[in-house]
Design a protein around this nucleic acid. Structure first.
Ligand SMILES: [Zn+2]
Ligand SMILES: [Zn+2]
Ligand SMILES: [Zn+2]
Ligand SMILES: [Zn+2]
Lengths: 134, 134
DNA sequence: CTTGACTCTGAAGTTAGCTTTAGGGTTTAT
DNA sequence: ATAAACCCTAAAGCTAACTTCAGAGTCAAG
């Protein structure tokens, strides 16, 4: 199949598919006489794999590593795959905690403000951001 | 004070301070005869403000807007400031939810894998990422 | 046979928030 | 007086993951 169909099937943009090839995520496919990329359905599986991996937080680099495992599964172990998953889970947790801290801080600051139509001259939010003690 | 001291006091890098000036977050200060930037302590307050705002998730652009309010507080209202805060709180919540969804999905996938030293030929993580039904 | 949809390449542009580089003056301490 | 530490500029580079552009060739339908 040509790149347009592959893109449609995988839900990616055509340019993204070419980009993934350039970045070494998928192999360069054979070409038609006119120079068009000619993909097998295997590539669709790879793109779906990438899309799923991205959807749970893996970067393209990490997707490339995971995909390398995927294409030669017998040379790798469950331990290795699960290790990468758990590493990513830890990263996600850390990111959530960082956001949580920001949210808590901002919520406390925000809640202290009256939110009224009066002038912000004495707004506690601005004071807090400046570093003034409450 | 010169830029080095200002940077030390604010906890920012010297280049960052110049960058903020270029981006319009802080005004260009007067210069010494030798051409050195000569800051008043007011700028330190502004930089602290920016650092705090960034720490709770505001982008530099948003910091610039907040700072504009900060420097002319009497022309703005608490409602306006609190509105921006609450908008940001909502964004933070959405980001946390997105991470939460990723985490839940990946955790479910990861938990199903034995994690053993056996070959990954039948690894359920890889199967799930490929899109196979379990 | 022509029109519109599709494909190709390589390079450059995008966003955010800096950091680095290159090359050159100034201040301060010893 | 000299060396370390500081300051200046403009421009380029960095990361991530694409997207856009310019210009040109190919395919399918009517
Ligand atoms: Zn108020
Ligand atoms: Zn207020
Ligand atoms: Zn297993
Ligand atoms: Zn497994």
């Amino acid at each position: 199949m040509r790149i347009g169909e592959l893109a449609r099937e995988s839900g990616l943009a055509v340019e993204t598919v070419r980009y993934y090839e350039k970045e070494g995520l998928i192999a360069a496919p054979p070409r038609s006489p006119a120079g068009y990329r000619d993909y097998s359905s295997l590539t669709l599986h790879y793109l779906n794999f990438i899309r799923s991996a991205k959807a749970v937080g893996f970067s393209l680099k990490e997707c490339r590593d995971l995909l390398a495992i995927f294409v030669s599964r017998d040379a790798h172990t469950c331990a290795e795959v699960k290790g990468l998953s758990e590493e990513k889970l830890t990263q996600l947790e850390q990111q959530m905690e960082a956001l949580q801290r920001m949210h808590q801080t901002l919520k406390a600051i925000s809640d202290a403000c009256c939110g009224g139509d009066e002038s912000a001259v004495n707004c506690s939010i601005l004071d807090q951001l400046e570093g003034k003690k409450p």
